[in-house]
Amino acid sequence: MKRFLVLLLPFLVLTGCSSSSTWGWYVINPMTASGWVNVKFLISGMGDTILISVIAAVISIVLGLIVALPGLAKSRWWRMVNRVYVELVRSIPLLPMLFWVFYGLPIIFREMGMNVPIDPFWGAIITLALSDSAFTAEIYRAGIQSIAKGQTEAAQTIGLNYLQTMRYVILPQAIRRILPPLANQFIYIVKMSAFASVIGMQELTRRANELVVTEYRPLEIYSLLILEYLILVLIISAGVRWLERRMGSDERG
C-alpha cells in the first residue's frame, strides 16, 4: 500500500501544476465534472483489459499443456511437432499475428464454407492466447522435465498409463515449479493486450487514444494510461510473489 502512495506522489505533485501552461491536468482532474467524465471513460476500459487477459491466459494455460506433452514424447516426430509449433509461434510478433487472426482468419473460414465472424474481442483473445501458448508450453516442458525420471518409471511399474502418470504423479509435483513462471507470464499478457486497441477493442489503450484525439492532451492522458497498467501489474506481481511464497513453504522437508 505504501508503495502505491509513493508512486502516486509525483502524479499528485504534477496534478498540482495543472495551472501552468505546459501541463493540462484539468482533462483528467476528477474534481471537475468534465475531468471526472474523462477519467471514468478511461478507467472503464479496465474491465475489458482484464477480461481479455484472463480469458487469453486460461486458454494459453490449457493450450500450452497440450503443446508441451508431445515435446516430452519418446518419438522424434512428436517432439518435432512441439518444436515447430513453439519456434513458429514464438517468432511471430504479436501485432502481425493480430492482423492475421483478425483480418486473415475469417477469410480462411469463409473459404472453408464456415461463417465464423471474429470480433475484436475474440480476435484479441485468440491472438494473445496463441502467442503466449508457445511460452507456457516451454514452462510446462521445463517443469515436467525437472521431475526425476524414476517417478515415471515407478508409476509405470505399478501399472499406471501415460495420462494417469501425468495426472497423479508428475503434474502434482511439477505444478509448484510451473505455477510461479506461469503467473509471471500473465503480466506479459496484460501488457500485450494493449495491442487489441489496434483492431478497435475499447480497452484501456484504445480509450486513451480516443480521448487524446478529442482533447489534444497526450502527455496527461498517456501518463494516466501508464499508471493504470502499472497498478494492474503491481497487483498481479504481488499475487505472483504470494504464490511463490506459498509454493515454497509447501516444499517437502
Binding site: 526425476a148 524414476g150 518409471e153 515407478a154 517437502r252
Partner: peptide
C-alpha cells in the same frame, strides 16, 4: 512384474 528401485522412487507428494 513388480519392481523395487535403488532410489526407492516413492511419490514425495
Amino acid at each position: 512384474v513388480g519392481m523395487v528401485f535403488q532410489q526407492f522412487n516413492l511419490f514425495p507428494h
